[in-house]
């Protein structure tokens, strides 16, 4: 099963790069078969039957929110750049996360980097260090809710 999944992934990447012609399909399946035999012993991943469902959820739930947040972030950057004196109040904030898997943490950190006014610096066990342009002085929970709140719910629904 592991061999089959590796083979299909390699073949799809090859065909995306080379174009969907019948000669390319033959050559690509040959190359992918050789690479699968060479590589499959060194890869360790678990076969996950929920993966297609997760992928569909990822595309249709996560991507629209992500694009919307990215557009908001860019309007924010444009406003800051074009104003005469740049409004700044920067600081580095520690944000706790409940996600367990590495892939979930990576996606969360990437989303934080691309949302308005935040930039994730480092990920350690279960907390992410985030540089924000505008620190709210009032309470720590408010910062945390504003930075990682919306994505954490969506990604928790997808990756858990």
């Amino acid at each position: 099963m592991k061999y089959l999944i590796t083979f299909i992934t390699l073949l799809v990447v090859y065909l995306f790069l080379a174009g969907f012609v019948i000669e390319e399909v033959i050559l690509g399946s040959f190359v992918s078969a050789v690479l699968t035999i060479l590589l499959a012993n060194r890869l360790n991943f678990k076969v996950d039957w929920h993966f297609p469902l997760k992928l569909i959820k990822f595309i249709f739930v996560y991507i629209p929110v992500f694009i919307w947040k990215l557009i908001l972030a860019n309007i924010d950057v444009a406003r800051r750049v074009l104003s005469f004196k740049i409004p700044l109040n920067p600081g580095i904030v520690k944000v706790k996360t409940n996600l367990k898997g590495d892939l979930g943490k990576l996606t969360l950190a990437n989303s934080i980097t691309l949302t308005p006014g935040t930039l994730s610096i480092d990920v350690e066990d279960d907390c992410i260090y985030v540089h924000t342009i505008d620190v709210k002085k009032s309470s720590k929970d408010q910062n945390q809710k504003e930075i990682s709140g919306p994505f954490e719910k969506i990604l928790g629904g997808i990756f858990e």
């Binding site: 990215l70 972030a73 860019n74 950057v77 444009a78 800051r80 750049v81 074009l82 740049i86 700044l88 920067p90 980097t113 691309l114 006014g117 935040t118 930039l119 540089h131 342009i133």
Partner: peptide, 22 residues
């Protein structure tokens, strides 16, 4: 806008933010 942000922002972290997002 990204180029302008990299040019105008006052310190390194803010430059990274403007550059990456835009």
């Amino acid at each position: 806008l990204g180029g302008l942000g990299v040019l105008r922002m006052p310190d390194t972290f803010n430059r990274i933010q403007a550059g990456t997002k835009a």
